[in-house]
Each structure stands twice: as structure tokens, then as C-alpha cells.
């Protein structure tokens, strides 16, 4: 059983917590350095990336998080992938640059443009389908050579991996399908 942290400064951390627990692992809601130090892996949830970055800096968590994400598997969904990107527009502070991608925030439009679709996923055991919930979602505009694209929606990469860092522009935590959480927790 693994101890999976979920950054709980703001956002839908509770949905990730449920997904982790359904898979039989321990979920730790992370608001402090102490809580982070107990975790084998970390999920950065959906929410507002501006709010999360401000709270990270206000609570002096930046250096601790930057060090953690270098050394542990991390999965970011929606706002979470923005925090892990190399570059994104209109952010109050720099993201953590664990994924060599450039991201445009709210690229599909406002809430009225939010949508759900299925996307094919290149899973380790073969092609699978994922139900992908896009809410005021970001779009990946560029991917560097070391980034693997695991799923696309049309021409847009929506699930990417670089070494031990995984990122989705959608919200697997808002569905009952636990395939992606299982993949992240078992990912080497």
C-alpha cells in the first residue's frame, strides 16, 4: 500500500482522495511540508492555478515542493499540469517546470465551452479509452522532445509524461474510471 499525497491548498483534492482510497491506498491531504514528507507520490489537483501558486509562496512551500517533485512521481490534473509546466500564460509566479510543455490557460473558453469526450489512451497493456472531463481546460501548445504524448483529443495532447511526471489537461478524478490513477500509482 502506497501513501499518495494530494496537494490540498485549494481545488478538487477530495475527488483525488476518493480515487486513491478506492484503489486501496492511503491518501494524505497535503497543506504543509510535514505532510508532504510522509508521501511516496503526489497529485496536484484541479482548481485555480493562480490561487494555488499564491498559497504555495505565501506558506513558503515553494522550495520544498520544487525539491519533492524532482525526486518523486507527481501527477497534475488541469490546474496541476499548469503548475508542472515549463511555461503558461498569465500566472502570478513561475510553475515548477517538470514537464517540458508550454500551456495556454482556459484555452477552450469559459465554463459554457467545458465538455466531456472520450479519448484513446496508449496504456502499457495496449490501447484503452478514457472519459475525459474538460473544465475551463488548458491546452498544451508545445511539447519538448523528452515529453511522451499518451493521449490526444483531436490534435491536442491531453495526457503527457516526462520521466516520473505525469500530466492531464482533463479531470480523471471526476469520473468513476480509476485506470489513470492506478497507472500513476504503479508507474515506475
Amino acid at each position: 500500500m502506497a501513501r499518495i499525497g494530494v496537494l490540498a491548498l485549494q481545488g478538487d483534492f477530495e475527488k483525488h482522495q476518493q480515487a486513491i482510497e478506492v484503489l486501496g491506498h492511503d491518501a494524505v491531504l497535503v497543506k504543509t511540508a510535514e505532510a508532504l514528507s510522509q508521501c511516496d507520490r503526489l497529485i496536484i489537483p484541479g482548481g485555480e492555478s493562480t490561487t494555488m501558486l499564491k498559497l504555495i509562496d505565501r506558506m513558503n512551500l515553494r522550495n520544498i515542493l520544487a525539491d519533492y517533485v524532482q525526486r518523486h512521481p507527481v501527477f497534475g490534473t488541469c490546474a496541476g499540469i499548469i503548475l508542472l509546466a515549463r511555461e503558461a500564460n498569465a500566472l502570478p509566479a513561475s510553475p515548477f517546470a517538470m514537464l517540458d510543455i508550454r500551456v495556454e490557460r482556459n484555452a477552450y473558453g469559459r465554463q459554457i465551452d467545458s465538455f466531456i469526450d472520450t479519448v484513446p489512451w496508449e496504456a502499457p497493456e495496449g490501447q484503452r479509452e478514457l472519459e475525459a472531463v474538460f473544465i475551463r481546460a488548458p491546452r498544451i501548445l508545445e511539447t519538448g522532445p523528452s515529453v511522451r504524448v499518451l493521449a490526444q483529443h483531436g490534435n491536442d495532447p491531453v495526457l503527457v509524461q516526462q520521466k516520473h511526471t505525469l500530466g492531464a489537461t482533463f479531470h480523471p478524478e471526476l469520473t468513476d474510471d480509476r485506470q489513470l490513477h492506478r497507472y500513476f500509482i504503479e508507474m515506475v
Binding site: A8, L9, Q10, G11, D12, F13, E14, K15, G46, G47, E48, T51, C78, A79, Q111, S114, F115, I116, V133, I135, R136, H171, L174
Partner: peptide
């Protein structure tokens, strides 16, 4: 409805 509640989920803790 899932999309609507989904946005509300994103605002939690804020």
C-alpha cells in the same frame, strides 16, 4: 450536470 458540479468542485477550499 457533471460539468456544472465539476466547476463547483474546482472552487473548493477557496
Amino acid at each position: 450536470f457533471k460539468l456544472k458540479v465539476g466547476l463547483a468542485e474546482m472552487l473548493k477550499g477557496g
